[in-house]
């Protein structure tokens, strides 16, 4: 993972519109952002669109002398998250309970289907969380962000991140339990 000073140096070069630095930023962060978007959206094409928009916004912001001064990774993920939740707002909420029934995990194909089923249910449940709780939970547990990094992404203190995380997980348990209950 990039160190803070490493990221700062890269960002400074990017601000000077050094092509190698700008490309390095893409190479470093685009794959993770793409996976993140694909997991939450459940659609590879939309994930592509999301990453495209995030990086184009990033370039435009730099070009206008705006954009991040630090915490580049957190900045990019926050933009991606905002884009994803903007997209969610345009669509009706998908209920969790209209998924196919959970397959019996007796053999490998069934295990595979069970994982798919769980992934899709969690994706839908995350959509029902308030956006900040969803951002905290997804960055922490899907992307492996530290509490400090999440705090930087949200622009809040670590204590607030812990509180959001707690509320997010509690709500998720509630949602998933309600749906899973026969």
């Amino acid at each position: 993972m990039a160190t803070f000073s490493d990221e700062q140096h890269l960002l400074a070069r990017a601000r000077a519109w050094e092509q190698a630095a700008l490309e390095a930023i893409y190479d470093r962060y685009a794959p993770g952002l793409y996976r993140y978007a694909a997991r939450l959206l459940g659609d590879a094409h939309e994930a592509e669109e999301c990453v495209a928009e995030v990086f184009a916004r990033f370039l435009v912001a730099l070009r206008q002398g705006k954009g991040p001064r630090r915490h580049l990774r957190a900045y990019l993920y926050r933009m991606a998250h905002n884009w994803i939740y903007d997209r969610f707002r345009e669509r009706p909420t998908v209920p969790l309970d209209d998924l196919w029934p959970p397959p019996a995990a007796t053999d490998n194909p069934a295990e595979h289907a069970t994982r798919q089923w769980r992934a899709e249910r969690l994706r839908r449940a995350l959509r029902q969380l308030p956006p900040r709780q969803a951002l905290v939970v997804s960055l922490r547990f899907l992307e492996g962000f530290s509490l400090e990094e999440v705090a930087a992404a949200l622009g809040v203190r670590v204590g607030a991140v812990k509180a959001l995380q707690h509320r997010g997980l509690t709500k998720l348990r509630q949602l998933l339990h309600e749906v899973e209950a026969p």
């Binding site: 694909a38 997991r39 590879a44 798919q116 769980r118 992934a119 249910r121 969690l122 994706r123 547990f141």
Partner: peptide, 12 residues
């Protein structure tokens, strides 16, 4: 649940 979503294959 998180393991399932985190390990979901994503086309690169």
């Amino acid at each position: 649940y998180f393991q399932a979503l985190a390990e979901e294959p994503v086309p690169e």
